[in-house]
């Protein structure tokens, strides 16, 4: 152990750990965004709103079931499903008629949706800050290298992240729908020409993407105040991550989230006063050398 410490001081190791847990939320949300961007070509600005709705739903579900552990686990399943339902309605009701439109038009439309969702959340849940309690099992902290406290809940996030990544990989690469979706991303017309109902494939992909936003919201709820406006904070970061990783590439989203999360936590160690700048500087550096993103873009 001492040998490792001489290469990586405990300070650095703990900040890496802390950064990784943040990466998890960023990855889950931006992978959904990237999936929709890649297959449907929709720059979904409302993705952040769905993340916010996920967090609010998690609050309600957890509260209905007494605010305890059962409430948390049910919220973790229920909130993403609720968000999926909302997105299904939006997709079948509006988006499915607009796939052929220009990107700018779609951008405006999804932006409009984000405003509508924002107001809906205010009407349904009100303006007060909400808080979801951390479940009993994950309360407290463990001492990391050098005795730094690391919240148990963040440890839980570190486990969830890879699980989501693997499941997503399985869906995209091993299932029929995943294969069709990948094909549709490359050539939409050809997939339609071989007799596949592209419309429903798109609907399913859209719902999966939004489900991930909801899951991100439900996962983040216990660590923050659930509040109006949490959508705007996240959506910008998510877009930067997706652009950095390569548009529509899920592994790009993972790589982007890693760079974003780690540069932030290590930035604090290097120059705390301007730690906030590091992730954005990383984006600039990446885009200077790889203007189309780190991995292959599907666009």
């Amino acid at each position: 152990m001492d040998f490792i410490y001489t290469i990586f001081p405990p300070k650095v190791l703990s900040q890496v750990f802390v950064g990784l847990s943040r990466t998890t939320i960023l990855f889950i949300v931006s992978s959904g965004l990237s999936l929709i961007l890649g297959v449907l070509r929709i720059p979904n600005v409302a993705h952040g709103s769905l993340y916010m709705i996920g967090a609010f739903m998690a609050f309600t579900i957890s509260k209905v079931f007494g605010g305890g552990d059962i409430g948390f686990w049910l919220a973790l399943i229920g909130a993403p499903l609720g968000v999926a339902l909302v997105s299904l309605i939006a997709e079948r009701g509006v988006f499915q008629f607009l796939y052929e439109r220009e990107h700018l038009m779609l951008l405006l439309l999804t932006f409009a949706f984000s405003l509508v969702f924002g107001d809906l959340v205010k009407i349904v849940w009100g303006a007060e800050y909400k808080s979801v309690p951390v479940p009993q099992v994950f309360q407290g902290f463990v001492n990391l290298f050098g005795g730094l406290p690391f919240p148990l809940y963040n440890l839980f996030l570190l486990i969830v992240g890879p699980i989501v990544a693997v499941v997503l990989w399985l869906i995209v690469n091993k299932t029929k729908i995943g294969k069709i979706a990948r094909a549709a991303a490359v050539d939409r017309e050809m997939v339609g020409a071989v007799g596949i109902n592209v419309s429903w494939v798109f609907a399913i992909v859209f719902v999966i993407g939004c489900l991930l936003a909801g899951l991100g919201g439900a996962l983040v709820a216990p660590t923050v105040s659930v509040t109006l406006g949490m959508d705007h904070t996240l959506i910008i970061e998510a877009f930067l991550i997706v652009i950095m990783g390569g548009l529509g590439n899920i592994w790009g989203a993972l790589l982007g989230a890693l760079i974003f999360g780690l540069s932030q936590s290590l930035g604090i160690l290097i120059w705390s006063q301007f730690g906030i700048v590091f992730p954005y500087a990383a984006v600039i550096v990446v885009l200077l050398f790889r203007p189309t993103g780190l991995l292959k873009s599907t666009w």
Partner: peptide, 20 residues
């Protein structure tokens, strides 16, 4: 001193930085 974005979701990196 450390400054974070308004609405930052995870404060752990900032707090552990301060503690160190």
């Amino acid at each position: 001193q450390s400054w974070r974005k308004v609405g930052e979701v995870d404060l752990t990196p900032y707090l552990s930085g301060a503690l160190q």
